[in-house]
Amino acid sequence: MTQQPDPRYDIDGDVFVSPRYLASTTGIGDPALAPLLGLGWDLQHDDLGNVYVHAPDRSVRLGYLPEGEDDGLWRINAYEDPFGPPAWGACFNDRTPTEFVHAFTTALASAHNQGPDAYLARPLSGTEHDPFLAVAPLLQQGWEVEPRNWGVFAVQSPDGLAGMEFTAGDLNPETELTTRDARWQLWAGKSIDRPAWYATASTNTPVALLAAVTQSVADPAPLPRWREDTFSYIKGTAQLTPILPPEPPAPTPLDIQRAAASRRPAALPAPSVQRWSTTSRPALPGPRR
């Protein structure tokens, strides 16, 4: 079972948000970039503040685009040919919890280390790349299959505030990379038409990368956030648990000994007694007045 974060650690936030898919972004991109930068991938940025990360062989490219043309804050593409069209693409909008993007980039870093057979692995039913494996973590946490139109497989969270869709049939590859009309769509909010956040993935996105995201979404552990940054719609739907101030560490045996010693009364100095020798004479009386 996943444990709740220990409030004694340094946590950036004043409340825990549960379920975690009702949390918003942390507003910091560094944690999601770290798995790729840790492999030595190339980091560049433009004058607007957008960040671009490339694999050394240019087989994978990531854009962190706070000044992009739309709300697609994170865009990740992989290529069979660095000069050809993307083999697959994924997008996370600007309010997606950063932890979900971090799950994706962590899995991507691992897959890229394994080679093209991993980071370009196409979903295939009945194999280790079966698309169902991307949905399984959600179903294991009580998400239910939701009736939709023919050709769309959808699951929804128990509270109805998050869902995932898989669209069958032929799709336009370019449209999948530039709009929400992609093979996969994950979202949270009051409806899929007006999501608080969303993530999309095109047809050939490896299942292992998708499963890493859904495992993070399905994790029952809450996420720390600042109360003022939480979505307004989650009031009454999400559980906000105050993060307690750090507790003092348990005293060690040496601490106990020192405390006990500090409570003992200080020893009184020995009385000053004039010592007389056998040859000493009694003091002479002083002169009378």
Score class of each variant (00 low, 15 high):
79 Y>F: 15
52 Y>R: 01
9 Y>W: 15
27 G>S: 02
208 A>H: 08
212 A>F: 11
264 R>G: 01
3 Q>C: 11
120 L>D: 02
4 Q>N: 09
289 R>E: 13
197 W>H: 04
253 P>N: 02
240 L>H: 01
271 P>H: 00
42 D>R: 12
43 L>N: 04
105 T>A: 04
234 I>Y: 06
213 V>R: 00
191 S>Q: 10
212 A>C: 02
215 Q>E: 13
249 P>K: 09
110 S>T: 15
167 T>S: 10
243 I>L: 04
204 N>Q: 15
56 P>H: 06
119 Y>I: 05
209 L>C: 02
200 T>I: 12
202 S>V: 07
118 A>R: 04
236 G>D: 04
107 A>T: 10
172 N>R: 07
117 D>E: 10
45 H>R: 13
158 P>W: 08
176 E>G: 00
197 W>E: 02
39 L>F: 07
282 P>M: 03
271 P>S: 03
271 P>W: 05
265 P>F: 10
96 T>Y: 01
170 D>C: 06
245 P>E: 08
179 T>Q: 04
286 G>R: 13
138 L>W: 05
225 R>G: 05
254 L>E: 15
160 G>T: 07
289 R>A: 11
91 C>W: 08
229 D>Q: 15
213 V>Q: 00
250 A>V: 15
263 R>W: 12
191 S>W: 14
271 P>I: 09
147 P>K: 12
62 L>C: 11
274 Q>D: 09
3 Q>H: 13
40 G>N: 04
57 D>E: 15
207 V>E: 06
174 E>Y: 08
107 A>H: 05
49 G>D: 02
129 H>V: 03
226 W>V: 09
118 A>Y: 08
81 D>S: 11
130 D>C: 08
151 G>M: 08
250 A>R: 15
244 L>G: 07
98 T>I: 03
8 R>Y: 04
138 L>V: 06
125 S>A: 15
221 A>Y: 08
158 P>T: 07
163 G>L: 14
28 I>A: 12
97 P>F: 11
114 Q>G: 02
46 D>I: 07
69 E>N: 08
107 A>K: 08
76 I>F: 11
92 F>P: 00
127 T>N: 00
56 P>A: 11
198 Y>W: 14
142 G>W: 13
212 A>T: 02
258 R>T: 09
74 W>L: 06
166 F>K: 08
100 F>W: 13
266 A>F: 11
54 H>K: 09
265 P>K: 05
140 Q>E: 12
245 P>H: 06
27 G>R: 04
3 Q>A: 12
167 T>E: 07
126 G>D: 03
205 T>Q: 03
172 N>K: 11
251 P>L: 07
215 Q>N: 14
202 S>R: 13
63 G>Y: 15
68 G>T: 07
163 G>D: 04
28 I>S: 12
20 R>S: 14
132 F>H: 12
186 L>N: 05
12 D>R: 10
45 H>T: 10
177 L>C: 01
205 T>H: 04
259 A>V: 08
200 T>R: 03
